[in-house]
Amino acid sequence: MFIIFYFTSLLTVILLLICTCAYIRALAPSVLDKNKTGILGIFWKCARIGERKSPYVACCCIIMAITILFSE
């Protein structure tokens, strides 16, 4: 629960959510496409971000991995 209080941890969780949703949508599109609105629509929106902005998301994942590996 305390992971969301640190900025780098929050960014890591958001990146993992985006990547996971994009991967799930690539495997089974019907799972996320039926929930485009409401609270479950967040996962559909994350999948769309992961698909459309994939080079930027990939760069952010690489930068986040480097900072996690070499911090402290």
Rank of each mutant, 00 (worst) to 15 (best):
T20N: 08
V13H: 03
G41E: 14
T37F: 02
R25P: 00
G38S: 03
T12E: 12
V57W: 02
L27I: 07
K34I: 05
E51Y: 04
D33L: 13
T8C: 06
C21F: 08
F5H: 04
F2K: 10
C21Y: 04
L11N: 10
L27K: 10
A22K: 13
A47F: 14
Y6A: 11
M64F: 02
I49F: 13
S54M: 07
V57I: 14
I18F: 09
S9L: 05
F43T: 05
C19K: 14
K53T: 02
T67N: 08
Y23Q: 08
L69W: 06
A22P: 00
A26E: 04
E51N: 12
A26C: 01
L17F: 10
K45T: 11
L17S: 14
F2M: 06
I3M: 08
V13Y: 05
K34Q: 13
I14P: 00
T37I: 01
Y23T: 12
T67W: 05
E72Y: 10
K36D: 05
I63P: 03
I18A: 13
T12R: 11
I42T: 14
I24K: 04
C60Q: 06
L69F: 06
I49T: 13
F5Q: 07
I18M: 12
G50K: 00
A58F: 12
K34G: 01
G50N: 02
T67V: 11
I24D: 03
R48E: 15
E72Q: 11
